[in-house]
Design a protein around this nucleic acid. Structure first.
Lengths: 117, 117
DNA sequence: CGAATATGTAAGTAATTACTTACGCATTCG
DNA sequence: CGAATGCGTAAGTAATTACTTACATATTCG
């Protein structure tokens, strides 16, 4: 991704990695410290820390200092923009396709309904 | 992204780029040839072709040969998995947060409501 | 204070991206 | 047939990713 990426791209990008999605799922069960999270992965702690940074930059989590620890917490609103994009476009496209179906059905039947295969 | 990426990661990754999202939006208005799409961008045709490949690999579009042209078409179902993931998790997290609110309100008020700062 | 714990960050590496230009192949048409 | 059009792919480059190990810093505690 080029620098200065827009927020929506950052959100989708953050979600485009199994480790990061799993981090989100773990945090979905409750807040956790970085080490508590890192223990669940076959990966160095810094690697997890870096993944957390990606998630944080995308607005999907927050890390707050709590004494010696950093408490990681989900930010559900961080998912809003991505959710809106996906839902909106799926709906539009589906509507368009349904329209096409109607056009096909009402107007002109295919000469060879199952010519493929 | 490492090789052998899972389908969900590929979908999110494909969406994590403004050019690719704009391609999807253009295709949302109807099918188009590669050149028709490429004309809309300040980018070489091969670059668009490569973006289309990412979208195709993610199952978000299909390219079918039509004579001299390739007709690009949206595949709304390609968005299903990503849509499901986002919707499901948002709902879960929101529910969790609402629960937390209840716990806080009903059970025990913080001793120092604003100790930070 | 000084060791232990929790974490971020720097530096280095291999793999991937996102482009570009150059080329090759298929289809259309004069 | 032979030039033009449409499009994919190869090769090269600069920037980014995803890790790693090493290190610096903050907080807790004996």
């Amino acid at each position: 991704m080029p620098i200065a990426t827009d927020p929506l791209s950052r959100s989708f990008f953050a979600l485009a990695d199994p480790t990061r999605r799993r981090l989100l799922e773990l945090l979905g069960r409750g807040t956790a410290s970085v080490n508590e999270l890192a223990e669940r992965f076959d990966m160095s702690r810094p690697a997890i820390s870096q993944h957390l940074k990606v998630l944080e930059d995308a607005g999907l989590i927050s890390r707050t200092k709590a004494g010696q620890y950093r408490t990681c917490e989900l930010r559900p609103e961080g998912l809003s923009e991505a959710e809106a994009w996906v839902i909106e476009h799926r709906a539009l496209w589906q509507a368009r396709f349904d329209q096409l179906d109607e056009v096909i059905r009402g107007q002109q039947l295919p000469a060879h309904p199952e010519e493929e295969l």
